[in-house]
Write a protein that binds this DNA or RNA. Structure first.
Lengths: 190, 190
DNA sequence: TATTGTCAATACGCTAGCGTATGGATAAGA
DNA sequence: TCTTATCCATACGCTAGCGTATTGACAATA
């Protein structure tokens, strides 16, 4: 028995995840109520029961995405004590072809809404802080750690785009691992 | 007497440049015929005299952008004989806050149309080839030059996004120059 | 002056998508 | 069984934008 057949009715979560799927591949601008309803096999009567409007869905979906993403980092990266190893793990994780990164790489240039820009800025600042902390723990002074983390994060951002632009998709785990190793060698002093 | 007052009627070029302005700040999806016509002080009767449809305008505008951009590179970067200096010049140029880079940084994540993806891929491959050539001239073997140029170009792409995301605009020439110096030190072996 | 070409205004029809209003179905409790 | 809450369908009005068709204004030119 399939998951779909089991379900009698939809939940807000179902809508959110459908929206995230669209965002990952076509961007926030492509999230439209009626097409989504069609894809889910219902009409928008259902949608407006769960959400007050289109933007409400987008907000909730992105909130869900951020929570998942933060969890990933908090569980897999932040606990690593050795800063060098922590950085390496971060590069490796960022190369993984998971939906979360797909969404991020789509959002990166989406300036269609002030809300999106705000979210992007917040996320970026958070992660820059993490990187900076790692570099400082490695003995860098403030200014150097800042420049270095900016560079490192640029590489991350650039990598997401390059992969999608060149291959139409994020790379497989194997190539990603190789690239992460190479980048780490460049950006983490030995 | 203003430029505008001098003009009796619009040319295709006027429409293209107006479109590029929109693309730079809101993306291709925001290029709409009627709003553009309003902004130019005419009606769409004019538009459909110059272009066959909306996509026709987008294509022509992007073509104009690419030509300008290529010219910039061909005149300022490629003539530099010393590969190390050429790379440094490239980093400096890429940090300049000009419209061309604004457009690129907007296009980077715009997957709304297959045509856009195609253009992005072509540009990326072209420039990767330039970088790769420089690194090879510096004595790198094929594989190493490839990885290194991928990294360098990722930094470029990432830089554009970071600047826009964090500060809402590309940085001024002075900060850009500083950052370019720092990046060059990291990515160009001495 | 008459003609032709260039650029723009006006007025259509058409579609997709937003949001609302209202009623129907179904399941859980009382 | 009757009621209530939950979820969805239907039908509506509304708007923005695309593209077409037709006519008008004006300048250059013959």
């Amino acid at each position: 028995m399939s998951e779909l057949a089991k379900k009698k009715s939809l939940t807000a979560k179902d809508w959110q995840e459908a929206a995230l799927n669209v965002i990952a591949h076509q961007g926030v601008g492509a999230v439209a109520v009626e097409p989504l309803a069609r894809a889910l096999g219902v009409t928008k009567g259902s949608f407006y029961w769960h959400f007050s409007n289109r933007m409400d869905l987008v907000k909730q979906a992105l909130k869900r995405w951020r929570e998942n993403d933060n969890q990933l980092i908090e569980q897999n990266i932040l606990p690593i004590k050795n800063p060098k190893k922590r950085l390496l793990a971060w590069f490796k994780l960022s190369a993984e072809p998971i939906q979360s990164h797909l969404i991020y790489s789509t959002l990166l240039a989406d300036r269609s809404h002030a809300m999106i820009s705000k979210i992007l800025k917040e996320i970026t600042l958070e992660r820059l802080a993490h990187l900076q902390k790692s570099y400082k723990e490695m003995g860098y002074d403030n200014a150097r750690a800042k420049s270095q983390s900016l560079l490192a994060y640029s590489v991350y951002v650039g990598f997401l785009h390059m992969a999608k632009t060149l291959y139409g998709a994020l790379p497989g785990s194997t190539e990603a691992e190789d690239y992460a190793q190479f980048v780490a060698k460049q950006l983490i002093p030995s």
